[in-house]
Design a protein around this nucleic acid. Structure first.
Lengths: 185, 185
DNA sequence: GTGGACATGTAATTGGTTACATGATTAG
DNA sequence: CTAATCATGTAACCAATTACATGTCCAC
């Protein structure tokens, strides 16, 4: 049982999903490719934590819809109370930012502008999803025992993070621009 | 050449270091254990991007002090201008936060309180380092061509991130507490 | 006609963690 | 006397990415 396994269980306890859906919606709190997810779902099924049914589709490939079992629920609930291992973040951009003094203003500005674009798209997506949730569930989102609570607080966290990233990039850009002006006087 | 290799080069271009030092100071923008770093330093040395000298120490093991070569500098500089791959973050706590509705208020509060402690320590450390930098280099930190610039902007970013994390945890805790009160009336 | 969404899987490789290994010094 | 810091390294294992593999439909 690795972290990804618990991540899958925590999504499936809210609603039954296909591996394809899990791959897409996992992004908020974990990242994994389908090549890691499909074998793991099979493993969890063998361990009696999941079951699945086929849904036949014409024109599209058949779906395998996975559902969590009582055993899966138990295993997940017990795990939540254990101490989480420290967060790991690996971001190539930060290496480049650290070494940004080696390059020219144009290259530096381009890097930061692309970073802004990248996060701006995330912000738009995030705001849309938050608005959808608030419209659909309203005050119920602030009930810690409701199944949408976790997703809601995570999206709020991510939005702040993404907005701060853009602000920070703009701050750095302002320094870069300011410096270029001074140099050309 | 993987991301870690560039992370090592970007540290070594600022000043020569031992593998041990690199392991410690890398934390801001990458994470790696010494078992990954030592073999990679050897590999970079074989590729003529690094050189090293032994520093004999009595009572402590000998040090290998690595220095970047002109080739290493060139390879690093060229890499900076290339498009960075998207950030990857894996945080077990977020899985637990997502599934927090499954547990009781006490367990949930403990998780969030421990998270606050974890980040508060980081904030203290970060503030100390920023203060040190500002004292030592002052306005020079805002010069994008100075070697401290990258480190400074990264620390500023990290501090904000860590402070926001604590604020968010406190917001969630306030919801949890508020809800417990209502339930017990 | 090309690329993307849908949908699932395996194989090969690289990246990263844990454990093994050594050894002196210092602080609690 | 136990744990932590300094200091470097290897081996075994697990986690994750990239590449291989298949097939239809729809939009541009």
């Amino acid at each position: 049982m690795n972290s990804l396994a618990y991540a899958l269980l925590s999504m499936l306890i809210r609603k039954s999903c296909t591996g394809y859906e899990l791959t897409q919606f996992l992004e908020t709190f974990w990242q994994a490719k389908h090549s890691q997810i499909y074998p793991l779902l099979k493993k969890l099924e063998n361990a009696d934590m999941l079951t699945f049914v086929y849904e036949h589709q014409t024109a599209k490939p058949d779906k395998k819809i996975y559902t969590i079992t009582p055993k899966g629920k138990e295993v997940l609930s017990e795990w939540i109370a254990t101490k989480p291992s420290p967060p790991v973040s690996r971001d190539e951009f930060l290496i480049k930012a650290y070494a940004i003094w080696l390059t020219d203003t144009e290259t530096a500005s381009e890097l930061f502008n692309e970073r802004i674009d990248f996060y701006q798209k995330k912000i738009d997506f995030r705001k849309e999803k938050i608005a959808e949730m608030e419209l659909a569930y309203g005050q119920q989102l602030l009930d810690p025992t409701a199944s949408h609570f976790g997703r809601y607080i995570l999206f709020k966290r991510k939005l702040k993070l993404e907005q701060d990233e853009v602000e920070w990039c703009q701050w750095v850009l302002s320094i870069l621009v300011n410096n270029t002006e001074q140099a050309s006087i």
